[in-house]
């Protein structure tokens, strides 16, 4: 029961502070992975892949998945509901009382400060994810897993090509899965 309460608390917090949609939830999920035994940072990278390749907004998919990993079907449902609850409260208040909210000077100033910080938070989370996914620690030294590192760099390089940017992420994950099986990752 206390696990369910913690799950609700963490996802409510994520819903309240993850500004900028899906990817903005990743720093919060990394924090959960570090703090609780619910899921590992390595598992988080496969959760991202599944959330991006299935229908539905990424943020909601990740909440359901993380909740499911922690407490099964019940966990998936309560995490997702906890994630959307702040939105329901905040949006209804804004729609009811705050005409022209998005044009308000202070609101704009606040978001001008938050946006670059969110970029930094996501960058830090991704670097952490790469560290735990593509490197192993042996005798206190970081050893890269060469196959994974090469695949990561190749995909990043290919994504700089405009025509490939339009491909759905699921296509990349399928390619990565086949590469993983063929080259025995």
């Amino acid at each position: 029961m206390s696990q369910a309460f913690l799950l609700i608390f963490e996802f409510f917090k994520t819903g309240l502070f993850a500004i900028g949609g899906g990817p903005a939830t990743i720093p919060f999920l990394m924090e959960m992975a570090a703090k609780y035994p619910w899921f590992t940072m390595q598992e988080l990278s496969s959760m991202i892949a599944i959330s991006e390749s299935t229908p539905g907004p990424i943020g909601l998919n990740m909440a359901t998945y993380a909740g499911f990993r922690t407490l099964g079907m019940f966990g998936g449902i309560v995490s997702t509901l906890a994630l959307v609850l702040p939105s329901i409260i905040v949006i209804i208040i804004i729609a009811k009382f705050l005409e022209g909210f998005q044009e308000n000077r202070i609101v704009q100033a606040v978001f001008k400060g938050i946006r670059p910080a969110v970029t930094a938070l996501i960058a830090a989370a991704v670097i952490n994810m790469i560290h735990v996914t593509l490197f192993t620690e042996e005798a206190g030294k970081l050893v890269p897993q060469y196959k994974g590192c090469i695949l990561c760099v190749v995909i990043f390089a290919l994504l700089q090509w405009k025509r490939l940017q339009k491909l759905h992420p699921a296509v990349w994950f399928l390619v990565a899965a086949v590469v993983g099986v063929v080259f025995q990752f």
Binding site: I26, S46, A49, I130, L134, G148, C149, G180, V181
Partner: peptide, 22 residues
């Protein structure tokens, strides 16, 4: 093996997300 491959792929895609966002 497939999941290990996908994890490498996710890292590449997320790097690109950060780059685009920046």
């Amino acid at each position: 093996h497939a999941i290990m491959g996908i994890r490498g792929g996710v890292c590449g895609l997320m790097l690109n997300t950060v780059y685009t966002l920046a």
